[in-house]
Amino acid sequence: MPDEDKKRAAHRALVDRVLNAEGRASPEQRARAFSNDGLPPPLHTLIGKVATNPAQVTDADFAAATASGCTEDELFELVICAAVGHATRQYEAGLAALAEATVDGEEDG
């Protein structure tokens, strides 16, 4: 079984795009949104909700981020980075648990 299946490869390419493709937000800002860590207020409120509680995002969160000087294109990118980032951490946690379970199973067997 190939370690790097096509689904995982397509996901890695998506992560690479949102972090490194040409964009309006800086690569540093995109990396912070992706990891949900180190963004200044009020941006951290919006990005934190996208990562951990997206159903709670409000118009006011976007309005505050815009008022602080972010353009809509920057917010488009940073929200996407936050969503892809959180889902990536879950994906990697799942694959790591599977790897651990599979190794243990072989040792037990």
Binding site: K49, V50, V57, A82, A83, H86, A87, T88, Q90, Y91
Partner: peptide, 12 residues
Amino acid sequence: AAFNTTDRLADA
């Protein structure tokens, strides 16, 4: 992973 991404974007 695909839907944890898309769900977040749909709500945000």
